[in-house]
């Protein structure tokens, strides 16, 4: 499998939903300039689930902020639906690593909050909100307050909030980052359920190779900072994917390729190369 170059990919796509070109972002402190993202270009088709995997500080989160228009790029452009992003977009749902639920609203009201500034009445969103809560097993917690929920439940509510207004674009920045392994597995399945049958385009930022392969149609691998795309792979595993897909050779091939790419970049260091793959876990 040879990795397709970005240029190759461009020729194949016509009218992408999101077009990112030469995007870079530098942060200026008093005396130093940090290059968070370095001249990145890619496309995102309507309804596609794209993951970005990479080490800490590689500009993954910056990329998400730039796509949402919440920060402006140093150079380059983001176009969504043919229009350049110059200010924060609101036709979007965002889920961060922190659930960011408002403590003073019930779970349901937190989700309905999404409509508050869009001129959408609570009533029209209520059915959809209840349906989403039901799908992630939170139906009976609709009237509970966030501090009555566990971390995983809170994050599920936060993802429901990001989807309740049926946004064409869903941005997620390590939404499972603060959760335990089993809850993460459940969340991955929940996300897949929530998106099944919709045409939602997803940009998913993660540290987890397995999650990226499990959920995505396509994965972008970012190298160490300043971040840039070092590899791109199309994950054509059949859907719906069950957790058992992770034990298949195909899955192992995808995650193995991402892992070796990150190792080659020096992101993951394996000092016992003779037992590559398992040694780093056994060493400790």
């Amino acid at each position: 499998m040879s990795s397709p170059s970005i240029g190759q990919y461009d020729e194949k796509t016509v009218d992408p939903f999101i077009r990112v070109r030469d995007l870079s972002k530098s942060f200026r402190a008093k005396t130093t300039i940090t290059h968070a993202l370095d001249s990145t270009s890619f496309d995102l088709q309507q309804g596609e689930f794209l993951s970005v995997v990479g080490p800490s500080g590689c500009g993954k989160s910056t990329l998400l902020m730039l796509v949402s228009g919440l920060t402006s790029p140093t150079t380059g452009t983001v176009e969504i639906g043919g229009r350049q992003v110059t200010s924060p977009i609101s036709d979007v749902g965002i889920a961060f690593q922190e659930d960011l639920l408002l403590e003073w609203h019930s779970t349901l009201d937190n989700i309905l909050m999404q409509g508050a500034f869009r001129g959408v009445s609570k009533r029209s969103l209520r059915d959809r909100a209840t349906e989403l809560l039901d799908m992630v097993g939170l139906a009976e917690f609709a009237d509970k307050y966030p501090h009555e929920l566990s971390g995983g439940m809170r994050q599920r509510a936060s993802i429901c909030r990001a989807l309740v207004h049926k946004p064409p674009l869903l941005l997620m920045d390590e939404p499972f980052g603060a959760l335990d392994a089993m809850t993460r597995d459940q969340m991955a399945l929940d996300i897949q359920d929530l998106l099944a049958g919709t045409n939602t385009t997803v940009l998913f930022i993660t540290h987890s190779i397995a999650e990226a392969v499990m959920l995505s149609d396509r994965v972008l691998v970012f190298g160490p900072p300043p971040g840039n795309i070092v590899d791109e792979l199309v994950v054509d595993l059949p859907r719906p994917r069950h957790l058992s897909v992770r034990e298949t050779p195909e899955f192992a091939a995808f995650s193995g390729r991402i892992r070796s790419r990150l190792e080659a970049m020096g992101v993951i260091r394996d000092r016992t190369a003779w037992a590559s793959g398992t040694a780093s876990a056994e060493r400790n």
Binding site: L70, I94, L100, F117
Partner: peptide, 18 residues
């Protein structure tokens, strides 16, 4: 207020006042 909360609010279409 967490900066990310402000990001969230803006993505919901909330104005500075809201």
């Amino acid at each position: 207020l967490e900066p990310k909360m402000i990001h969230l609010a803006r993505s919901m279409g909330a104005s500075t006042w809201q």
